[in-house]
């Protein structure tokens, strides 16, 4: 017992300085993509030939685009064509599906600000009920990691609740497999109002590499990535309740 006590004191505080300090991202971190204005349809086709996901890259209204809701951030397009770059911008969470689409020539990205009064009321106490519906466990594990001392999201009042009865949001991961449809619907229905759905990871947002099943409701927050980096998730959750 004494040894355990001493070990605890020696360990000290391990919680990262993020936030408010910038997160410690790996040197090869691939965040929000940037596309040159003058990217041609041919170049997009060339990049599409190496892209693992259907519809992640495209060309419409004379402009190239990348849909972060489908992208798995593998960087193959950027390796193929210098007109696409993955920046270190990790603040990827958005409140509208359309905001996940990055168009050629777009600059000066500012993450959207929460205006939903019901969501803002959850600042300081946001209870999440995780539902994995066909997820590969990567999104689940990197959400779970937010509860460890290194990230300690509980200091902002954000927790994973054991029961949907105690939760404000369903934190959905995975492409909503057919066999999880009814369990997901029931879990969502079991939450008291006001309630939200958060779609985390490419699978939950668009199906990603798979086909997505139906949502119980429109998501109020989209967190892209495969899986999203914990810093991306934590920042998105904080911004969702107006704490960032």
């Amino acid at each position: 017992m004494l040894k355990a006590f001493i070990a605890r004191i020696k360990e000290g505080c391990r919680t990262g300085a993020f936030p408010p300090a910038e997160p410690n991202l790996p040197p090869d971190f691939r965040g929000r993509p940037e596309i040159d204005e003058a990217t041609s349809a041919e170049e997009v086709e060339e990049m599409k030939s190496v892209c693992p996901v259907d519809g992640a890259l495209g060309f419409s209204e004379g402009k190239a685009f990348i849909d972060m809701g489908r992208c798995i951030f593998c960087g193959r397009c950027a390796a193929k064509c210098t007109k696409v770059r993955f920046t270190r911008e990790y603040r990827l969470g958005v409140f509208k599906r359309d905001d996940l689409v990055v168009r050629a020539g777009e600059g000066g990205y500012v993450p959207p600000v929460q205006t939903d009064a019901e969501a803002l009321r959850l600042k300081g106490s946001l209870q999440l009920r995780e539902v994995s519906a066909g997820g590969c466990a990567a999104c689940e594990l990197d959400a779970n990691v937010l509860g460890t001392p290194a990230w300690d999201m509980a200091r902002f009042g954000i927790r994973f609740a054991a029961s949907p009865r105690h939760a404000d949001t369903v934190y959905l991961t995975g492409p909503v497999s057919r066999n999880m449809r009814s369990a997901l619907d029931k879990t969502y229905a079991a939450m008291p109002e006001p309630k939200f759905l958060i779609a985390a990871g490419a699978c939950a947002i668009s199906g990603g590499l798979y086909e997505r099943g139906e949502y119980p409701a429109e998501p109020a927050l989209y967190i892209p990535g495969c899986p999203p980096h914990p810093a991306t998730t934590l920042e998105a959750l904080l911004r969702f309740v107006g704490d960032m």
Binding site: R14, N24, P26, P27, D28, F29, R30, I72, F73, C74, G75, A138, D142, V145, G147, T148, P149, A150, C226, P227, H229
Partner: peptide
């Protein structure tokens, strides 16, 4: 819990993804 994260970050240092993808 914290140390597991260190090894995931080592993986991310090598390939940019915490799961070695």
């Amino acid at each position: 819990g914290r140390i597991r994260g260190e090894y995931l970050n080592m993986t991310a240092l090598l390939c940019g993804n915490r799961f070695g993808r």
